[in-house]
Amino acid sequence: NRMYLVCPMNTSPHVDPLKSGHEVWEEFSHCFTPAVREVVEFAKKIPGFRVLSQHDQVSLLKAGTFEVLVVRFASLFDMKERTVTFLGGNKYSVDALRAMGSGDLLNSMSDFSEKLMNLGLSEEEMSLFTAVVLVSADRSGIENVNSVEALQETLIRALRSLITRNHPNESAVFTKLLLKLPDLRSLNNMHSEQLLAFKVH
């Protein structure tokens, strides 16, 4: 009945069996909190984000932080070596993590990361794509949909312009990037289901 935390936001998947569930959660929280703060700092630098109402800023961040983290940490997944590097710096093989109970979510995250990394985006392109991921007008709880939609459209136009300029002979890159958005939603839903399972456990 050993428990493992196969999320790479941990320092390690191994959980001290002597620790209570609350202690395990606290430790995990210490691992992901700095990354979440970085997402907030990133959001604040998106031109136009701070003009949105505070309610909508919070709603976008609540709904999109996981997806932003998936994009930011795509490089943790190495599908050639079939390894995942945890934030503690240690690498674990996909097979070992599967034996620890990782399921479809980690496999799907690996697939997503591999395809995203294969696009060979620059840091600037990746940042703009991440901004597009975060500013989505169809997130739940948005008060001023029109404002979020306007910012979203501006960001998508900027992304298209940047990608077209940088990849003149690869017309499909922009389309492929937009198709990553529903993939991220799907990963987000799977992650929410796993959180529920974790809490029930």
Partner: peptide, 27 residues
């Protein structure tokens, strides 16, 4: 389940990071 961000404590972290900055700007 409907609000995993709140369950994780994410909302607190997000609000502190956003509002903390607002307070700094007011100072």
């Amino acid at each position: 389940f409907n609000d995993p961000a709140s369950n994780l404590g994410l909302e607190d972290i997000i609000r502190k990071a956003l509002i903390g900055n607002l307070e700094e700007r007011q100072e």
